[in-house]
Amino acid sequence: MTAKKNSYEKEYEELEEIIGLIQNDKLPMDEVLSKVESGFKLIEKLQKTLSETKNKIEKLQAKYDQ
């Protein structure tokens, strides 16, 4: 649980770093595109993690309510 949370946080920090880089004017356009792709991939991954977590919580809640 802790490792996963750390993983999420780490990936989120990576996302913020990517956004920071994108903001930076000095980054070449090719790399911007590459970072944007990486950023959206990270967002997709993090959203998937959140969705999975949400599903698990809902299942746990349902199991507990029984």
């Binding site: 996302l15 913020e16 990517i18 956004i19 950023g39 959206f40 967002i43 993090l46 959140l50």
Partner: peptide
């Protein structure tokens, strides 16, 4: 994340 996406 949505915000991040929007931000991007």
């Amino acid at each position: 994340l949505i915000h991040s996406g929007h931000q991007i």
